[in-house]
Simulated assay, not measured.
Amino acid sequence: MDARTIIGWNLRRLRVEHGLSQERLALAAGIDRAYVGRVERGSENVTITTLEAMATALSVPVAILLTEPAADAPPPMPLRAGRKRAS
Results as ranks from 00 to 15, higher is better:
Ala73Arg: 13
Ala73Pro: 03
Leu25Asn: 04
Ala28Trp: 02
Asp32Lys: 10
Ile7Lys: 01
Ala29Ile: 02
Arg12His: 06
Val39Ser: 05
Ala81Asn: 12
Thr50Pro: 00
Ser43His: 12
Asp2Gly: 13
Ala73Gln: 14
Val16Gln: 01
Asp2Thr: 07
Thr5Ser: 11
Gln22Asp: 05
Arg83His: 15
Val39Gly: 08
Asp72Val: 09
Pro75Tyr: 05
Ala86Tyr: 03
Leu11Tyr: 07
Ala55His: 02
Pro78Cys: 02
Ser21Phe: 11
Ile64Phe: 06
Gly37Pro: 11
Gly19Thr: 07
Thr56Trp: 05
Glu23Asn: 07
Trp9Tyr: 12
Glu17Phe: 09
Ser21Ala: 03
Glu40Phe: 00
Val16Phe: 05
Leu25Cys: 01
Asn10Ser: 02
Val39Glu: 04
Asp32Thr: 00
Pro61Leu: 00
Ile31Gln: 07
Pro76Met: 08
Arg85Ile: 05
Thr5Tyr: 09
Leu65Arg: 01
Ala86Ile: 09
Asn10Thr: 02
Leu65Thr: 03
Met1Ile: 09
Ser87Pro: 12
Ala86Asn: 09
Met1Trp: 04
Arg4Trp: 10
Pro76Leu: 01
Asn10Asp: 04
Thr49Val: 15
Val62Ala: 10
Lys84Leu: 14
Leu51Gln: 04
Pro74Phe: 07
Pro76Gln: 07
Glu17Ala: 15
Pro74Arg: 13
Met1Leu: 10
Pro69Lys: 08
Asn45Arg: 13
Gly8Val: 01
Ser59Phe: 02
Glu68Asn: 05
Glu40Tyr: 00
Val16Ile: 06
Ala28Glu: 14
Arg41Ala: 12
Leu51Met: 13
Ala55Met: 01
Glu44Ile: 08
Arg83Phe: 07
Leu66Phe: 11
Tyr35Ser: 13
Gly30Glu: 06
Ala63Ser: 15
Pro61Ala: 03
Val46Met: 02
Ala70Asp: 14
Trp9Phe: 15
Ala81Tyr: 08
Arg15Lys: 07
Gly30Pro: 07
Thr5Cys: 02
Thr49Arg: 13
Thr50Glu: 00
Val39Lys: 01
Met54Glu: 00
Ser21Arg: 12
Leu14His: 11
Leu58Asp: 06
Leu51Asn: 05
Ala73Tyr: 06
Tyr35Val: 13
Ala57Leu: 06
Ser21Thr: 15
Ile64Gln: 04
Ala70Tyr: 06
Ala63His: 13
Thr67Cys: 08
Val62Tyr: 01
Glu40Arg: 00
Arg83Asp: 13
Asp32His: 14
Val39Cys: 10
Arg83Trp: 05
Arg41Asp: 05
Thr56Cys: 11
Thr47Pro: 07
Thr56Gln: 10
Asp32Gln: 03
Arg80Trp: 10
Glu68Thr: 14
Gly82Tyr: 11
Met1Gly: 14
Ala71Asp: 07
Gly82Cys: 08
Leu20Thr: 06
Leu58Ile: 09
Pro78Phe: 13
Leu20Arg: 09
Ala70Arg: 12
Asp2Ala: 05
